[in-house]
């Protein structure tokens, strides 16, 4: 299992703990990555103000990844959606592909459409699979109530590529349960983290993340797991979103790969858990040895 790894802006420049924990855990599950040079932003933030420049940026990154002959792996859900949407347009619209390729040519690049775009949720759930993950565990989180935050762009819009159910996603729930934890349903499961509003109204953005964390805290759930650097930042920085809504928020929030890494017995510092703002210590100290595989 080898992929061209496309990290996007947030992970490349800031969300190091996601990359650290993903590389640590996926490496042990037999996944290899090609780290290619020259990537740029996927274009997600300028998608609505300049549709052509968004296509160009996405196509540019896919074209770089395609030089490796490998499929593309994304950890960020924003990158996932953006690359998949661009791929959908470029694979179905010859004229648009020609126009984009005319711009790409000045950097010696060409979008061919040969590589598939994948996201870590599908990699973990569909490609590696729950059984293989289960056999890699040395600790279990029995009884721990962990809620999944999927993030809008992990599951919508439908029709652009493989994904989970856009209204009732279950893959991250399954991945939580395989660690022994519970994945209780909560009505705010599909609520947005608010990140896209940061460009327009950050008070509203943090109100949105604060309200979601507050609901989770009020239900008595013990942790939140995420699969996107933007969602993680919005939900983990509970000093900011708590202040915004006037509430004291203390729900341990981490990337799924950090929780998985703990269950695999990986040193917390190698998972970047020292970078989380929310009180993840309570989760690090939980967990019991897993029974030896039969």
């Amino acid at each position: 299992m080898k992929y061209a790894l496309y990290l996007g802006c947030a992970i490349t420049t800031e969300a190091y703990s996601y990359e650290m924990s993903a590389r640590e855990t996926l490496g042990r599950l037999g996944v290899e990555f090609a780290d290619l040079e020259g990537y740029s932003c996927c274009g997600v933030t300028i998608r609505s103000i300049n549709p052509f420049a968004f296509l160009y940026l996405s196509a540019r990154n896919i074209a770089i990844a395609e030089t490796s002959g490998l499929d593309i792996m994304t950890f960020c859900t924003g990158c996932r959606m953006t690359l998949l949407e661009a791929k959908h347009v470029l694979d179905h619209n010859d004229k648009m592909r020609e126009r984009v390729n005319a711009v790409l040519a000045s950097e010696g690049l060409e979008y061919k459409g040969a590589s598939q775009v994948k996201h870590i949720l599908e990699l973990l759930h569909d490609t590696i699979g729950l059984e293989k993950i289960k056999s890699s565990l040395v600790r279990r989180f029995d009884g721990l109530k962990v809620v999944p935050h999927y993030g809008c762009h992990a599951i919508r819009p439908s029709g652009i590529g493989p994904q989970d159910d856009p209204e009732d996603p279950q893959k991250l729930d399954d991945l939580i349960r395989v660690l022994g934890a519970e994945a209780p349903y909560y009505p705010q499961k599909l609520d947005c983290c608010g990140a896209p509003l940061l460009l327009k109204n950050d008070n509203a953005a943090f109100t949105m993340s604060g309200q979601k964390v507050k609901a989770i805290q009020d239900y008595g759930f013990e942790a939140i797991v995420t699969i996107c650097p933007s969602c993680q930042k919005m939900l983990d920085t509970q000093d900011i979103c708590g202040r915004t809504i006037g509430a004291a928020l203390n729900v341990p929030t981490m990337y799924y790969t950090q929780l998985l890494g703990l269950a695999m017995g990986i040193e917390p510092d190698k998972l970047g858990l020292g970078m989380n703002v929310s009180p993840v210590r309570q989760i690090i100290d939980r967990g019991a040895p897993a029974p030896a595989p039969a």
Partner: peptide, 18 residues
């Protein structure tokens, strides 16, 4: 994005060893 192709320079983050 025009200045550097990515949204910001890689930042230094506060890392507190667990």
């Amino acid at each position: 994005l025009m200045d550097r192709g990515i949204i910001q320079e890689p930042v230094e983050v506060m890392l507190k060893s667990v």
